[in-house]
Design a protein around this nucleic acid. Sequence first.
RNA 1: GCCCUGGUGGUGGAACUGGUAGACACGCAGGACUUAAAAUCCUGUUCGCCGCAACGCGAGUGCGGGUUCAAUUCCCGCCUGGGGCACCA
Length: 994
Amino acid sequence: MEYDFRKIEKEWQAQWKKNGAYRVKNDFSKPKCYVLDMFPYPSGAGLHVGHPLGYIASDIYSRYKRLKGFNVLHPMGYDAFGLPAEQYAIEHGVHPAKSTVQNIDTFRKQLDNIGFCYDWDREVRTCEPGYYKWTQWIFLQLFNSFFNRATRKAEPIAELAAEFEKNGNAGHACPGDASISFTAEQWKAYTEKEKQDILMNYRLAFCGYGEVNWCEALGTVLANDEVVNGVSERGGHPVVKKKLRQWYLRITEYADRLLEGLETIEFSEAMKEMQTNWIGKSYGAEIDFVIVSRESSGVSEELTTHHSPLTVYTTRPDTIFGVDFMVIAPEHELIESITTPVQKPAVEEYITYVKSRSDRERQAEKKISGCFTGAYAVNPFNGKQIPIWISEYVLAGYGTGAIMGVPCGDERDHKFARHFNIPITNIIGQHYNGVDANPTKDAQLENSEFLNGVVMRDAIGIVNAKLEEMGIGKKKVNYKMRDAAFSRQRYWGEPFPIQWKNGVAVPLNETELPLLLPEVDSYSPGPEGEGPLANIPAWVAKELETNTMPGYAGSSWYFLRYMDPHNTETFCDRTLSDYWNQVDLYIGGTEHAVGHLLYSRLWTKVLFDLGHIGFDEPFRKLLNQGMIQGSSRFVYRVLWQGIFKPDFDLSKLPTIFVSAGLLKGNKINIEDVGIENTVKTQLNQILHKYALDGFRNIEDITVAALHVDVNFVNGIRLDINAFKNWRTEYQNSEFIYEGGPVGNPLKLEPGKKMDNPWVFDCGIEVEKMSKSKFNTVNPDDLVEKFGADTFRMYEMFLGPVDQSKPWDTKGIEGVHRFLKKLWRLFFDEVKGKVWTEEKATTEELKVLHRTIRKIGEDTERFSFNTAVSAFMICVNELSDLKCHKREILEPLVIMVTSYAPHISEALWKALGNENSVLDAVFPEYEEKYTVESSKEYPVSINGKVRTNINIALDATAEQVQEITLANELVQKWMEGKALKKFIFVKGKMINVVI
RNA sequence: GCCCUGGUGGUGGAACUGGUAGACACGCAGGACUUAAAAUCCUGUUCGCCGCAACGCGAGUGCGGGUUCAAUUCCCGCCUGGGGCACCA
């Protein structure tokens, strides 16, 4: 009986489906385990081999936990709103809902192929009204709440309004605009609109103005990755910054809670670091500088003082005497009033330049640019006049949009000063070498008047105290994180449950939800950069918000909906969220480090604060899956330009490709005489075939690399026929081969057979897996060829799940062989059943229990690749022992279940079990079977292993030393020298130092 | 530019807390079975050197230094691949 994986997998998938084997009950009597994958965006390209990496890992873990007796929630769904579907709609006129459903169907088929244990009854789709009703509902919770800084949590905005009635806002500084301050009486006197405008500055979901990438030619707002070098990716039209009304989430109020929460969850240190850096909490000071302009009247200089000071934010007030210039952001509001007439044209020109630049470009730019405003800031301590510059590297959104330039202490400031010949003041003496800035805090200050001799670290406090005393500065905690933009000028997203009445945002009643996304005739943008909804007269007539929510809205809370997916009364019943609680294991890519993961943490905290759920961190443990990259293959086409005599008719030429091994860069490798001759010979043959003449010189040949579909390539060897049939224009192409029979002038590579045939090889490059690069591999093909079990184990065998690696199918056969070998422990091709009921030997039990321990440990620590090899070792050893005993094989099958469920169920049932192996009990490891009495110790002399000595494990250190030193080989290596030190690590090694 | 992360044989990778570098698998080479092929099995396989052989010598985990009896693992400096940087998801 052979291992017929196609039959087995089909049969058991059908059975499991029929029995509802993966249906999850809310069984409160069992311990729960919640294992979640980051749900996919269902793109039109379908699933490629990169997607399932994390899904397989979570599937294995889920099944393992089930065998360990847990009630496991393991759902899947779709992040179904998004830009690509809308783009597709614009281009093809297909409604996004329609293409999305089609894409979901494709995904589902592909997922089912691999045999996942998802409970599909719990599937969610963010684009369905039954789902986004609750996304809108949570938005209203955010809209109707503020962050109470005293209690450090979200509270109803109505309570805040009541508080204003009593005490004004004395106890609640305004997060949106710190200058807002009023008494109870003033509050009562405000009009309703004034009150609402003030409350808007407190709400957790609020409306404000923000800059977007505006493309006039396309009449739309562009995503950052649609903008390349200041122009639109499509069409190359200019893109500028434009201020639009936008919704935001006041995530900045939660900065500290988000930081503190990191200590309670198991994310990788790298991930925590990324989030910490993103939040970017810093302690510093805001300092006001008086601004003056010098007006030259020819004879004397007159100083004009501006009424507004320049407020800078700095983390290093101690360097105040080292400030040689100020830099303000090109968007800074003071620019207009402080720029001198002389500098005006230059400043305006510079600002125009900056407007075309993205934040990213501005920060990444190595070339220093900037422009002097003509104004000066006055150092409050010594009256020194400091020139005020504008430069793109200062962003308006961070701090006050103005910094003090301290060239001796900051590298970027240093480069700036050098570039514009601004004299550099050295305040750290020998710590500054005149070439590079030194950001130390440990130097003693010089040239710093009252701070001279003080260590910088200590000077920070002294300066702060002095500034506060003078009333021109204060300590300030700052965050790099900005409030999260929460609206898009798009169609395919959740509509906001908001109406605009006389400029006031009025939330819809909960009973009016869901506010359905209406049908539109056209998906193109509305007037003035508004979203497509602005094109619908009925929508506009109802004064409904025309923005829609961004992609991360639906994904910020979906993990809750899986617990109670069909509830129409509430987003998730509290008893269910109390039971299922946090996600115990969340698997997904690092690319979500600061987006999705931060937003869902925020939403969870708000829902917790408002009493809707009982925990304030969504994901107890996060496992990052590495990205599977594509390994692209290239063929090299000969470019003929300039190679033939001028009168030559190029149209007669066939398309010619050159094998990769014959090339050096984009030319023929003529340094190798053998290669040169091979190419010449073949080229002449081809030209002869086409009766062509007039070729000049082989050295002039250059080639162009073209992506070739990786499915036509075995390793690097091209399947010429498949390639020719790929596209009609390649049908009659010619190939210049390498390799060739003995005696040909080409040098043979080591490892190649002597009777090598001519071959054609491709070039390789690792790139992102993408349809356009022809490097995608569809899991369906592999499942068809090798089966789902093989595919699952192979993806795991590829390497650590959290590491990125290029996809390569070679090696999958090894895993397939392993499953066949496992099968042969049970069945012989001719004899049929071969398992027996004999008693297992100690040796066999040792093999089994070593495996139990290893599989348990490795699965718990997500080291799936080593678990697979442990299975291989086990099966190899059992084969060597010719062990076919049920006592050994049955526990083994249970262990294999989480990795390769289909074959396991088939073998389990073959052994005569009635129930499903999915519900078996994971075997218990017993140490008594694996204990060893002695160990083959490696013995090093001065750190180099020279021999091995078998010593009992219970030998004392003295005994070991005695045995070791008595050893003949050890004696030889010691050459009579005296023993300096004897190192013995029990169970590990011995090192003799002489 | 800034933040995070990786780099080990021909290839994917293993070595979990500083303790025998290369498990397991692919590939390759040789062999067995077979009329033949497939399938399967066996042997070898980091590189270099010596050799009849060795559990013989030397080098070796991106590069250069350091700490240690001992470094893939810890520290410093560099090179280089990947991810993110706020409207892709």
